[in-house]
């Protein structure tokens, strides 16, 4: 058991170590000053200090709230829309041009407008997160529901499954592996959405902290520490979803 864990962990640790060593070498060989590229140990100690003195924590709380709300709302709407698209050709014909257009419009350009219309509070960030999360999950749901085996749906007919039973017992579980593909993408995009929303105006959040560190404190190590925190947030979210996915989808051969 322990040996297996070791064997699984070893490559992860090796790659992480390699990354840190390469980073340090880059700083040393390139002779970069801290304000351009801080060495890993400086970033690490800044990260610890910023967590200890409470610099980062409130910003993490803000960003996490935005991500979770935006993700929940965006994915909820996406699941419903994706199902409608899969089941109704009319819905697909009517909606898909707008969905694609919305997706093709850079969220970076929309964000300031959304901040203008909905203020710089939580609402605008949640909207931006929802928007960015929506498309991949809606498309994955559509494709997933359409890919559910017709033979299994026929089994449902034999046993006189009601439309709701077909949805909950056959279509959703059948589409789940593909839906989770979209959810994984959506979760990482939600992090980006929150940061973009904060850049469009905000009082707190990791995006705001980036701007503070960069623009008024000139604290490059804090900037890196914030980036690391954001990355960790994204990875944690991704793992959480993998965990849920494993529980719900499991091995299907």
């Amino acid at each position: 058991m322990t040996r297996r864990v070791l064997r699984d962990l070893l490559p992860v640790v090796a790659v992480a170590t390699g990354f840190v060593v390469a980073w340090k070498l880059l700083v040393v060989i390139g002779g970069y000053p801290t304000f351009i590229l801080p060495p890993p140990e400086v970033v690490a100690s800044r990260l610890v200090a910023a967590w200890r003195d409470g610099t980062i924590e409130p910003h993490v709380a803000t960003t996490l709230t935005e991500i979770l709300l935006g993700f929940l709302i965006g994915s909820g709407l996406a699941l419903v829309t994706g199902y409608a698209l899969a089941r109704s050709r009319l819905a697909e014909r009517l909606l898909s041009p707008y969905l694609v257009a919305a997706q093709a419009t850079p969220i970076l350009a929309l964000a300031p407008l959304i901040a203008l219309w909905f203020g710089t509070g939580l609402a605008s960030k949640v909207i931006i997160c929802s928007l960015i999360v929506f498309f991949p999950i809606a498309v994955a749901t559509m494709v997933g529901v359409r890919s559910v085996d017709r033979q299994l749906l026929e089994v449902g007919r034999v046993y006189r499954a009601t439309p709701l039973q077909v949805l909950t017992r056959l279509e959703i579980p059948g589409a789940l592996p593909l839906i989770f593909g979209g959810i994984r993408v959506g979760a990482t995009l939600a992090v980006i959405g929150a940061i973009i929303g904060e850049w469009a105006g905000g009082e707190s959040g990791l995006g705001v902290l980036i701007n503070l560190a960069r623009g008024s404190l000139f604290d490059t190590p804090l900037l890196f520490a914030t980036l690391l925190t954001i990355a960790a947030l994204g990875v944690a979210l991704y793992w959480l979803i993998l965990l849920v996915e494993h529980q719900l989808v499991g091995e299907r051969g």
Binding site: P33, T34, F35, I36, S216, L217, F218, D219, T220
Partner: peptide, 22 residues
């Protein structure tokens, strides 16, 4: 960093920047 030779900036930004070693 030296990419720009001379620029315009307010004094209250120079103080934290120098304190960070820029």
């Amino acid at each position: 960093q030296g990419t720009i030779d001379v620029g315009i900036s307010d004094g209250t930004s120079v103080i934290p920047a120098v304190s960070q070693g820029i």
